[in-house]
């Protein structure tokens, strides 16, 4: 729908964005690939040498990798379950008419805007701290022994913190999807004799399935890269019990200065993320045509 003149102009206008992103993707990523085949430690400059897949072998056979992989999956899965189930219920609730809808909505969304380091520190110190935290106080008030969440259930605690941050996102998107449901459809199903549960299962859920998929995929992309929350609360510990792949790569490269090993880990993370990304892209691409 355009002329050759405007097409040429269009190409010119799009090129800075394309070139920058191309540079951002190709240059560092190929460097990572290159480093991953080197024995390269920042503490020993000038000792770099090509060692093939050794870094991958080390990284993939390191028990820390399996721990990190398991933790990553638990973290992603746990947060997803909490946010999807909680988000759906919250969306259903917020979609009902009640007094102060706007304010409650604002309250529910708020955690999403709290920077990760702040929310992690607030939860760590003011809630989960075994001496001064609110949870410890309530435990004591009930005559129970205070529980040191971050020492004894570090991963679960991090899951709670991250889920608190992402619950608003899921709620907001599911609520938006819910509100786009044609009321007449619901009324028709009611006329057809469907009760609340029937309506939810046969009308509402199918309508929201698309939004739920989107939430799952987008959250997965972000959750695979959870970092600040772990850094601030547990530093991945105790041991590797709350280390995820992102944190493992960070520790290997910037704490142990093992560029080669860290790069191999980075490439593994890229491959894992790509598996999710393919599905997400397909969904979004389909939407682009509609």
């Amino acid at each position: 729908m355009a002329t050759a003149h405007s097409r040429a102009a269009a190409r010119l206008m799009i090129s800075p964005a394309v070139l920058l992103l191309l540079g951002w993707m190709i240059v560092p990523l190929s460097m990572t690939v290159y480093f991953s085949f080197l024995s390269y430690n920042l503490l020993m400059p000038g000792m770099e040498e090509f060692i093939g897949f050794t870094n991958y072998e080390f990284f993939l056979t390191d028990p820390a990798f399996f721990a990190a992989l398991a933790n990553t999956l638990l973290l992603v899965g746990g947060v997803l379950v909490i946010t999807i189930v909680g988000g759906t219920l919250l969306a259903l609730l917020l979609d009902q008419p009640f007094w102060g809808q706007g304010i409650v909505r604002i309250l529910v969304i708020a955690p999403f805007f709290v920077m990760p380091t702040v929310s992690a520190l607030v939860w760590k110190n003011m809630f989960m701290n075994p001496v001064n935290g609110l949870f410890a106080y309530f435990a004591k008030a009930l005559g129970l022994q205070p529980f040191d969440f971050l020492a004894h259930a570090p991963l679960a605690s991090i899951i709670v913190i991250v889920a608190w941050q992402w619950l608003p996102f899921a709620t907001l998107i599911l609520l938006t999807a819910l509100q786009s449901l044609d009321q007449e459809q619901l009324e028709a199903s009611e006329m057809d004799g469907a009760n609340f549960l029937n309506r939810f299962v046969y009308i509402v859920l199918p309508h929201m399935s698309r939004a739920i998929t989107v939430v799952i995929l987008i959250q997965t992309i972000f959750l695979l890269s959870v970092f600040a929350e772990i850094l601030v609360t547990t530093n991945g510990g105790p041991g590797t019990s709350s280390t995820n792949i992102t944190y493992l790569v960070y520790a290997q490269s910037l704490l142990q200065f093992d560029v080669g090993g860290g790069s191999a880990g980075g490439i593994v993370a890229v491959i894992l993320a790509n598996i999710v990304a393919v599905f997400l892209m397909r969904m979004i691409g389909k939407n682009l045509e509609a």
């Binding site: 990572t32 695979l224 890269s225 490269s253 560029v259 980075g266 993370a269 993320a273 691409g285």
Partner: peptide, 17 residues
Amino acid sequence: MWMLSTKMLPPVGVLIP
């Protein structure tokens, strides 16, 4: 779609470079 895919790149993948 390609631009979007760059967003999917996990940051640790390019942290070192």
